[in-house]
Computed example of a mutant assay.
Amino acid sequence: MSALSTVRSAPAPAPAPAAAPEAGWPSPQAVTEVSARLRALPPLVALGDCLELRRRLAEVAAGGAHLIQGGDCAELFAEVSAHTTRRKAAQLRELAGLLEDGTGRPALAVGRIAGQFAKPRSQPVESGPLGESLPVYRGDAVNGFAPTAEARTPDPGRLLTAYELASDIHRYLAAETESAGRRVWTSHEALLLDYELPLARTLGDQHYGSSGHLLWIGERTRQPDGRHVRALAALANPVAVKLGPATTAADVAELVARLDPERAPGRLSFVLRCGADLVEQVLPGLVRAAADAGARPVWICDPMHGNTERSADGRKTRRMTRVAAEIRSFVRVLRRLGEHPGGVHLELTPDDVTECVAGPGDTPGAARYWTACDPRLNPAQARFATAVFIEEAR
């Protein structure tokens, strides 16, 4: 009997409100029906693989390795294929290879892939093409990108499509690993608990999230007493938390207590996303708070989200000068405090997009501005950001 044959659905947690703010489903009954179907489906990842990633992340936490984590801001259902998966995996493997060659340490390749189908949004509505009020696009797992009332109506049936496509991506990645030799681990923000909780599984005495190898909690949902922290605290996966500029030392201490009570290296990663100008002000206190709590997290730099701005024509963009500045400040602060800079978390694509710009005054090119939400680095820009990290971290 195989190990996976003994995997069973975890006991159902206390029900969350059907119209949770991260989704806004219109029909509680439909969510209940979809949850039941998800609980009956096979796990997308194996517990043993999640624990192996924890072991590898423990090496990063100890200073013996690095990681590159990256992928689309929001994966699109229509783009999932063996070809696109192969290209995304190849990009991550290339960047991991650059990290290894540049620092002399092993490097993990972790994708924002096979589950990054949902996005937290700052506002629940936005203006449509005729000035009408429309629900905001929350990712393909929730609603459609087209600016119509029909497309933007949240549909819990999309969670089943997300599962099916994630399963396809995992199958493609497994085939890629056999041919390429370097594994690409999967990760996504565990935003939609109506997806994550039904996919929790139990093997022996351990519960884990079977939707991906590494799950993270976003800046908007990292409240230590919140539903997302409670949900991930019960899982054996490696977990990460995005930390924005308002994060306090007390927040970090409580997140450590709830998510890493055994202080196990590799269990917890903190992903700083505060903006280039605030790293020196914010990061030292958070690092000291984690150390005072007895934790040894993996420290990761997300130089993207704190540096988003609007171009003159109203589109979101990011300046490479600020991306580089945040990476440099991140590594230098950690070095000064005697801590290991674990790696970088980038929104990127293997496509030659023109969504991010070089510096002040530059405008993202409309012809190749293809993102469904936030601007991504193209291959040359991703190599540049990785090179900046290498220059500071080696």
Rank of each mutant, 00 (worst) to 15 (best):
T247C: 15
T247G: 03
T247H: 05
T248R: 03
D251W: 07
D251R: 08
D251T: 01
L255C: 05
V256K: 01
A257I: 01
A264S: 12
S269F: 03
C274R: 00
G275M: 11
V279L: 12
V282Y: 03
A289K: 10
A290V: 01
A291V: 14
D292T: 10
A295M: 09
R296Q: 15
R296H: 11
W299K: 09
W299C: 06
W299A: 11
P303T: 05
H305K: 06
G306E: 13
G306R: 13
R315I: 01
K316A: 11
K316D: 00
T317R: 13
R319Q: 15
R319L: 15
M320H: 14
T321W: 00
R322L: 10
R322E: 03
V323F: 00
E326K: 11
R328Q: 12
R328C: 02
F330A: 09
V331W: 00
R332C: 00
V333C: 14
R336H: 04
P341R: 13
G342K: 14
G343P: 06
E347L: 02
D352T: 04
E355P: 06
E355I: 10
C356N: 04
V357F: 01
G359M: 10
G359P: 02
G361R: 02
D362F: 05
T363D: 14
P364G: 12
A366P: 03
A367H: 10
R368E: 12
Y369N: 08
T371W: 12
